[in-house]
Design a protein around this nucleic acid. Structure first.
Lengths: 256, 256
DNA sequence: CGCCGCCTTGACCACCATCAAGTGGAGTGG
DNA sequence: CCACTCCACTTGATGGTGGTCAAGGCGGCG
């Protein structure tokens, strides 16, 4: 690749937002430069802290650049429902400015790096760069598709397949942003958090994890998860990645 | 009301799309005229028929003007997951043009009146009428919020409250479009369809419906459902309507 | 009349919730 | 360095919610 010859210091692309949006469209150098400019100023947030609370009026657009966060609601009974996991490259609230108040909260699960993007910047970007407008819209549509898949997952599958399905989804989403090479990645969620996302109890998550381990479908020590045979796990989970709408620009080249 | 004096034939507003979008913004006469023009040409579709199939490339925008439809997926095991109910005023696929192919299907539950709106018309509308652009965006955000609420509902609540919650939601959504006056409405879903939406079995839906009847929370004969005491049912279901984001323009005037 | 969807009911049992106790590692302070 | 606490994870016993299987009723429609 001679055209890289004179830029030896250039790091391999590691901006998760850019990596993700490239699944939708070809981004040109200017698009990429703008995205990098936007994501330059990050802010650290400790683990287990709210980023946005239910009832808040929406403000800036927020973006996760590092760490895991989640959308959640607290129900009257005191239970928590985790309705989405946010990984690097995911937006918190691209569009919510139109709504009067947040109907759910967003909180960190691990320490996170966030970017706050003024709404005006987003608007200017989408007006001038049709590619990016399209890519951002694509990102919200994929978030919605994930929500639908979770609903189907939760409603129709037994808990072992349900958990396996979540693992398959996370692997692929992390893979896209370069965080799950070789079918292994850090799964920094506690079993309680997994339980709240799956709609089952902590105790049961524990037992199901052990089942999956004993079946040789996953390997897990500490927070490090690896998948000996991705195809086998995906088959077990009935995982069909279509809903993530990856690699739209060149359908042949989907990452394995 | 003397200004209506010379239009005695004018029907009370009964266009569900307009009634719904007015929950978001004040629409002026021109906005309304355009919406009426768009919804003039309807098309009948029989019950239990697909409107869009999984895998189809997205085409026109479709809108339900009468009847009930649903988003659904068929899982490998042969089970069906209903992930959304579409009632009059709801869009099938405002934004999906950006995606390569549908990741779920949409089918009618009852006979429906649909409108097919060319994408160009939608684009033109949103460019010229900021109010409408806002209202359409609002509508998709509410759809997403409903999806999140369903996820919480399914994951965290016992099946009786789950079903009660769905009934509360439907009542309010139908009320907005003038189809649930006096806390009663037609619920044209079969118990099997309810089961697929709630993630439980038909047999269990049957039993839960009877429980709710015996508890005096609902009255049901045939497909006609009425709610003796809405507040009581909503309390039982832990129903909090905030997620529907109704009546944003004048928070005081929410319909009871 | 007879078929076919849809609803209803009963018997049985498994999955998963609940309750309770205990392990082990990380961090803290004596 | 050891005791202590705290948190996440682990394990067992028990029971209920809701699944499964099976049969029957009922109304609509050809």
């Amino acid at each position: 690749m001679p055209r890289l010859q004179f830029r030896p210091a250039a790091p391999p692309m590691s901006n998760p937002l850019i990596l993700k949006l490239q699944q939708c469209c070809e981004l040109d150098a200017d698009d990429i430069a703008r995205l990098e400019a936007i994501t330059a100023r990050t802010r650290r947030v400790p683990a287990k802290e709210d980023i946005i609370r239910e009832g808040d009026p929406p403000t800036d657009v927020r973006l996760v650049l590092d760490g895991f966060a989640c959308r959640y609601k607290l129900l009257p009974g005191g239970k928590r429902s985790i309705m989405a996991l946010l990984v690097p490259g995911d937006f918190c609230d691209l569009d919510v400015a139109i709504l009067d108040r947040m109907d759910h909260a967003i909180g960190t699960l691990t320490p996170c790096s966030l970017v706050d993007i003024p709404r005006a910047t987003v608007n200017e970007l989408t007006e001038r760069r049709p590619n990016l407008a399209r890519a951002l819209r694509w990102a919200t549509l994929v978030d919605e598709a994930i929500l639908r898949e979770w609903l189907a997952n939760m409603g129709q599958r037994a808990s072992d397949r349900q958990l396996a399905h979540l693992i398959c989804e996370l692997r692929l989403r992390l893979h896209v942003v370069g965080m799950a090479p070789a079918a292994s990645f850090r799964l920094p969620l506690t079993q309680e958090e997994l339980a709240d996302a799956l709609g089952i109890t902590t105790v049961h998550v524990n037992r199901v994890l052990q089942q999956l381990r004993e079946a040789g479908l996953i390997r897990l020590n500490g927070r490090a998860l690896s998948i000996p045979d991705v195809a086998r796990l995906e088959e077990f989970a009935e995982f069909n990645p279509d809903y993530l709408h990856l690699n739209q620009r060149s359908p042949a080249a989907r990452p394995a």
